[in-house]
Design a protein around this nucleic acid. Sequence first.
DNA 1: TCACATGTTGCAGTTTTTTGCAAGAAAAAA
DNA 2: TTTTTTCTTGCAAAAAACTGCAACATGTGA
Lengths: 249, 249
Amino acid sequence: MLKEERQQLILNEVDLHNRVLLTDLAEQLEVSVDTVRRDVKELDAGSKLRKVHGGAVSLGYTHTAARSSNVYALSEKMAIAEKAISLLREGAVVFIDGGTTCLEMARMIPPKLKLTCFTFSLPVALQLAGMPHVDLIFIGGRISPDSMISNGPYTIQQLSEVRFDYAFLGTGYVDALHGLTEFDWDVVQLKKAVIRASKKVVLLCISEKLNSQHRFKTCDINDINTMVTELSPENNLLNLFRNQDLRLL
Amino acid sequence: MLKEERQQLILNEVDLHNRVLLTDLAEQLEVSVDTVRRDVKELDAGSKLRKVHGGAVSLGYTHTAARSSNVYALSEKMAIAEKAISLLREGAVVFIDGGTTCLEMARMIPPKLKLTCFTFSLPVALQLAGMPHVDLIFIGGRISPDSMISNGPYTIQQLSEVRFDYAFLGTGYVDALHGLTEFDWDVVQLKKAVIRASKKVVLLCISEKLNSQHRFKTCDINDINTMVTELSPENNLLNLFRNQDLRLL
DNA sequence: TCACATGTTGCAGTTTTTTGCAAGAAAAAA
DNA sequence: TTTTTTCTTGCAAAAAACTGCAACATGTGA
């Protein structure tokens, strides 16, 4: 039997049953487990399936969320994400908000860093689900079609039952005086719940949003422990935020 | 024998059998393996077939192999999805399982049909989240990186608090005698919880899976109300399932 | 016709690929 | 924790691929 042929059969089997054992495949194909293992390794390298301990799983689900081509101010957001990541410690329990900046952060989590991540954002979850070293817990509820995050009383209730070391939050608007504000009342309730559930709150915020505000208030600036922008912490634009306990990064 | 003629015969063989061994060709054509090898190399360079170690495979054959983006047996799954969708009624509260068949079903939900959909599959959720007429509720919990679904006690507990009109389920393995079985014990617990939460259970199952089984049992065939395959309900392959209360579609 | 270039084929020696095996490491299970 | 299973690594045998070479056929031009 040709290697090619064998690998095709492995793919069939995996796609059909979602998950198969190497030993089962070996028996079925009448080759040694080592051979199957090598085949599966190759197919994995070629992104045809995913190799796991003892077997292989189908890749049918995982459209590895290709970054939607046009993210606004991507380079700034990547800079923010990079700084935010430097706050992560092995074994930490963190929450990651929705939004493109937080999504960028999720994407940039180092592949060796073991974390427990909570999120209620589908795109963030999809991103993190592809990382085997990340223990991912999705906070369910009614999904809002606009933001792709779960929201509502059920979600908030679940947030009341957990506790994060760090919450990495985005915001619609931020102002030194008026704090974090949002367009949506629902979103404010949700973010409040996240803040209540976190020991420390890190705000990821592109400098363009500084000194803007809207109707509904999430929290004061003082409720934030660390604010991450793409600017240097010494930048004059941050002067109004240079106070008390707020750490700039 | 002319080289041209010989190469044509090689192509015929490849198209006929999808794969051939160089040694077989050599014997058949009564030339040395080296000659065949050189021919195959040329044909490969001309994209007439694909040369692999020890033989050659047809291009169509490898094309189905390189379906990283495509779903295995897509047309069958679409046929199943279409039939399953015909069971949906305006305003129904349904659960949709993970897996490519169910994902296909989610994708094909008519744009005017108002539904309340529950799921614990990230890809399915992502698909449904884009549909404004669908009220989507994600059942949260720890996300398994393999299957992109939430699982574990938390998920199961939440499932115990809801009630669906219909649950559209996939399965790893199905057998008339042994019922629905899975590779993973966890998955079985989860599916059991779904079945408990549903008034009616619809199994979406490609015919290729019929008469296969694995270690852990989800339920008996009798616990399923409707089984949907891509086959006509009268097909002989379904004879073993033609019993009692099971409705074939 | 002859000399010569060109292309094809088979052979031999060497290199590469594939495969299975075994021992220790790592991971999962009990 | 201990036990079992799986993974990794290195190795060796077998199969296949590659290379260079020689033999042979075919065609070309003098």
